[in-house]
């Protein structure tokens, strides 16, 4: 029997959707008992959320004041101490999991499989390399713990309806004080989250200014969509870094992705390959974005975007 431990990601007192997707990925390995580890200063509500996920055997909480922020150097020794007896240790391939999981793997003396996009068996997985220009099948050695990060865009969240028991644990681990949290800029909380939104409206360099990005926000509001941006738009200062979609930004899989004034560099396309419907609006009919778009429109986005917003609002 495989035994898997999923590391819960959370912020502002809520479980991140990545946790349910990690559970769903782990369920793909077949016969498996799944535990979720919740590290926090106060794990109460988080543990209850995790316990409600379907297919979870138990939720383990590690409550200490030092766990208030997810500092890899602080969390990794505790999770390494907890890892004994598990065959699989999984976390999300978000900046949280990408920061934390390799630190745990090294403490356990094993390698890590990054960005699992498909599960072939308990020890065989598929993952993207070369900015998703190739997919490799990898095999971890049986007999040692498999540490992996999960590409959340590739998995549906696990169903709810679970009633797993919650157990408070204490592990003996010396926690370092050499790493200290200072601050975090508040992301725009009154909009859908880019990583999990069903609809995303994204802008590129052609927007030409941060001011013009407001056009996108208005269309996004009409659609109930999150806003994204290409690397070029972020580098030019038109949009905040956390809005970047693509290989080095966020990899997303919305129902609808609208690429407005985005030429479609390979690094950007990597981030949207799993979107169900891709719409491209660009004045350059040769732009590579049209090669992957389900619906393409060649034209001036400064007239098309407001017109589209007007038509959508007229329907409502």
């Amino acid at each position: 029997m495989n035994r898997a431990l999923v590391i819960a990601e959370h912020s502002l007192g809520k479980l991140n959707a990545s946790t349910a997707k990690c559970v769903s990925c782990v369920q793909g390995i077949g016969e498996v008992e799944i535990d979720i580890a919740v590290l926090a200063a106060d794990a109460g509500a988080l543990a209850a959320e995790a316990a409600a996920l379907g297919g979870v055997r138990r939720v383990l909480t590690l409550e200490r004041p030092e766990n208030v922020e997810a500092l890899a150097a602080v969390w990794a020794p505790q999770l390494a101490a907890l890892a004994g007896g598990y065959t699989h240790l999984f976390g999300p391939s978000t900046t949280f999991g990408k920061d934390l999981m390799p630190r745990i793997a090294a403490l356990l003396g094993v390698g890590q499989i990054s960005d699992v996009m498909a599960v072939d068996s308990a020890y065989r997985f598929r993952r993207p390399v070369y900015a998703s220009n190739a997919i490799i099948t990898v095999e971890a050695p049986a007999g040692s713990i498999v540490v992996a990060t999960v590409r959340t865009a590739s998995f549906q969240p696990a169903a709810g309806g679970g009633q797993a028991p919650i157990e408070a644990l204490a592990v003996t681990a010396t926690l370092p004080t050499h790493t200290r949290f200072v601050s975090r800029s508040a992301a725009n909380a009154d909009r859908p989250d880019l990583q999990t939104a069903a609809r995303v409206v994204s802008g590129g360099r052609a927007l030409a200014s941060a001011e013009n990005f407001k056009l996108l926000y208005q269309l996004a509001d009409a659609l109930g969509a999150a806003v994204g941006a290409s690397r070029a738009a972020v580098d030019a200062g038109y949009a905040a870094n956390e809005l970047q979609v693509g290989q080095t930004g966020k990899i997303i899989a919305p129902q609808l992705y609208m690429a407005l004034g985005i030429s479609g560099a390979i690094q950007h396309l990597t981030g949207i390959k799993d979107a169900r419907t891709i719409v491209a609006v660009n004045k350059d009919s040769e732009a590579p974005i049209f090669e992957v778009a389900d619906i393409g429109l060649v034209g001036d986005l400064f007239t098309i975007v407001p017109e589209l917003e007007r038509l959508i609002r007229a329907r409502q």
Binding site: P128, A134, I135, I136, T137, V138, F290, A293, D294
Partner: peptide
């Protein structure tokens, strides 16, 4: 961890204009 094989990713096809 061993790499067993490389594959080209599935491609999306061009849609309607």
């Amino acid at each position: 961890i061993r790499t067993l094989k490389f594959e080209a990713p599935p491609t999306r096809s061009r849609g309607v204009m």
